[in-house]
């Protein structure tokens, strides 16, 4: 018995260091998105119960008087990319609990910028998601599956608690000011992410956070629906990306 107990009764409190700051930033981002009318889409291919738990926390708060917030579970049997592509609108949140190498999750997160959604990736283990693969990565170092599962519950409980603290600060929930600097790379159409909806010869219909638009794809290899491209001045300027290939 003593040995068995030690398997699970291991110290867990040291993990909080970096996680606390990541949780703070993610909570403020969630509060901003919710305040602007966003919906949170929760998915966990391997642990659907965690996704269900996150959604029910936000929809039906355990503390009376707290706002019910729109959160939805992506059905575990669904094609995650197809399901979310059909459902999300710019301003939404996609929160995923998954390993770093889950292919459906990698594909989903890569599309976050083109869909205009805030992405949150919660997971554990020595292998972390590639840098920049989500807006918020909240990661635990533990390789112990049971310990990770326990701490995931803590993490999404805290995410809910901190998000509601942010609602007490309405001044900080306003949209980020528009960039008006003429040489600002972010705003200068330098290369906006887009997802191809359909292709007709040298022209393609693509989806961006600003809506659908027609672009010229004659400068790149012919893309297929679902491919990600970068758009500059009405032209696709990068070849379609494949899973595992750098964007």
């Amino acid at each position: 018995m003593a040995d068995t107990k030690q398997v699970t009764v291991t110290a867990v409190s040291d993990e909080v260091g970096g996680v606390a700051a990541d949780l703070a930033r993610a909570s403020l981002a969630l509060a901003r998105r919710f305040s602007a009318g966003g919906t949170m889409w929760c998915a966990s291919p391997n642990w659907p119960f965690h996704a269900h738990h996150v959604a029910v926390e936000f929809v039906h708060p355990v503390i009376m008087g707290k706002r019910a917030l729109p959160a939805v579970t992506v059905p575990p049997a669904a094609d995650m990319v197809a399901s979310l592509r059909a459902s999300v609108v710019p301003g939404d949140i996609v929160l995923v609990l998954a390993d770093a190498d889950d292919p459906a999750v990698v594909e989903t997160m890569r599309r976050g910028a083109a869909w205009g959604v805030e992405t949150v990736w919660i997971g554990a283990g020595g292998r972390r998601p590639e840098p920049g693969s989500a807006n918020h990565v909240i990661w635990l170092d533990t390789e112990n599956a049971l310990q990770a599962s326990e701490l995931f519950v803590r993490i999404y409980h805290l995410l809910w608690e901190l998000t509601h603290v942010c609602f007490e600060h309405p001044g900080l929930l306003k949209p980020e000011p528009e960039c008006t600097d003429e040489v600002c790379i972010t705003c200068s159409d330098e290369g906006r992410p887009a997802e191809v909806v359909s292709v007709d010869g040298d022209e393609a219909l693509v989806r961006t956070p600003d809506g659908h638009e027609h672009i010229d794809v004659s400068l790149i290899d012919p893309p297929a629906p679902g491919d990600l491209v970068l758009v500059h001045a009405g032209f696709a300027i990068t070849a379609p990306t494949q899973p595992g290939r750098p964007v």
Partner: peptide, 28 residues
């Protein structure tokens, strides 16, 4: 004195992180 006029999120983020650490230790 803030209400809707607060614009610097730095203090709030520090406060949230401290709160998260405290709750984490309570949970442990």
């Amino acid at each position: 004195f803030i209400e809707g006029d607060e614009t610097d999120s730095g203090t709030l983020l520090e406060d949230l992180a401290r709160s998260a650490e405290g709750k984490w230790l309570q949970s442990s």
